[in-house]
Simulated scan of single mutants.
Amino acid sequence: MSQKIYFDESGFTGNNLLHPKQNYFAYASVATDDDEARALVEKLTKKYNIQGGELKGANLVKFSKGRKVITEVLDAFDGRIKISISDKKFALAGKFHEYIFEPCYSSINSIFYGIGFHRFIANVLYMEFTARGAGAEELFSEFESLMREGTGQNLETIFSSSAVAEHSDTIRLIREFAQVRHQDIRSELESLTDGETGKWVLDLTNTALYTLLANWGSEHDVLTAVCDHSKPLRHNQELFNAMVGNTKKLTSDFGGEEHPITFNLSGPIEFASSHDTHGIQIADAIAAAAVYVFSGARDEASDRWRHIIVRQAHYGSVVPDMDELRLGSQRPQLNTLVLHQLHQRAMKGLSLTEGMPEAIANMGRSLRFSPYSAA
């Protein structure tokens, strides 16, 4: 028997991850059925006299009465909720590695993912953005524009507008690396020029939905996915359609952690309106609560929600981890050395892949014997 899972989001801004008033994106899911969801929504709208008879999370979090509604929703479905939450600026920093660095060594990218280089770069950029202000904002803004437009013009001087004295030496290395390897970056951008793909290249919806479904699939043999209408999801259905009727349960140890990567859908993703689908309204309220909590709200409701939200908000979530930058640890030291090695090779016109696995292994061995002096 198929388990219905309802999905909805809060904080959606598409390719605009630098939206000044929407710092977080949450994609929430709840395992229920039409009858249970309808009964709860009708009960709550009547009990709290909710206008329109519909739960709208963005409105509910604004008022004490609405927050009481969300509390009842979370209590009713605790244990049947999964949430993906993303800090948008950090997600953009992660995309930076994906489209600026990875195209330059794609043939051996598993080596770099294995040492967490992608996480190192994302956290370095995020730290610069939050700690150093205007110059880093220029770099992020220029990268976001580059990805949205996808033209690849003036790549030879990319990020020059963000070259300010306040920047760390690490940002200089990243900027110069990107400028020298502009041909690799241009080739990657050209692969996104089919219009719609480039239009949603920075959007977080597809990845969040896929990760949530994969984790639900580890609990249920067959899933029926019901989502609110979404342009990014409607555009890209290939990955999800490939899971219709799939019975293989595969995992990946990407990044050193094992994750489920397959699931079994009863059919293509179903799209429905929140007005007519009570399960989507439940998911919408949960997503709004997640954004409310992660945005730093401190009140009686958010304090009560926090233990539920945090426990359920780790499925593909994209949030910073400053442990990736603690130079007292060997992994950040190694990734710092790797960045210097990549920059040095790029500036000299040398191959970024030939002999690199061996070089990384040698650096790792040196750090194990002399973790501070080697770094």
Rank of each mutant, 00 (worst) to 15 (best):
I83F: 00
P320D: 02
L239P: 04
R331Y: 11
Q341K: 14
G53I: 08
D203G: 10
I50D: 11
H259Q: 12
S295T: 12
H229E: 14
M347A: 08
R175K: 10
C227K: 12
A285M: 02
E176F: 10
D221H: 03
F101L: 12
S2T: 14
R365E: 15
L92P: 09
S295Q: 11
L352T: 11
F271A: 12
R326S: 05
T224Q: 13
A242N: 06
L350Y: 07
A93P: 01
H19V: 11
V164N: 06
F12L: 06
H229K: 15
K248W: 06
V291A: 06
V338R: 07
S2M: 08
S107M: 02
Q183Y: 07
A208C: 09
L339T: 01
F12R: 05
F63K: 15
L146P: 09
Q330A: 08
E219T: 08
P260D: 10
F25C: 08
A290P: 05
I111S: 11
Q341R: 14
E238K: 15
H307L: 03
S273E: 12
N215Y: 00
G364S: 03
K248G: 06
I70E: 09
R132H: 06
G116R: 07
G150N: 04
F271G: 11
F129C: 01
I185H: 04
V291H: 07
E238D: 14
D253V: 13
F25S: 03
S161L: 09
G198T: 01
N246L: 04
T71F: 10
A285W: 04
D169I: 11
H118M: 05
S2Q: 12
M356A: 00
S191E: 13
I115H: 04
L327T: 14
R186G: 09
Q3I: 09
E270F: 00
I70R: 01
N335K: 10
R345I: 08
I83Q: 13
D221W: 08
I83G: 01
D78Y: 12
A208G: 10
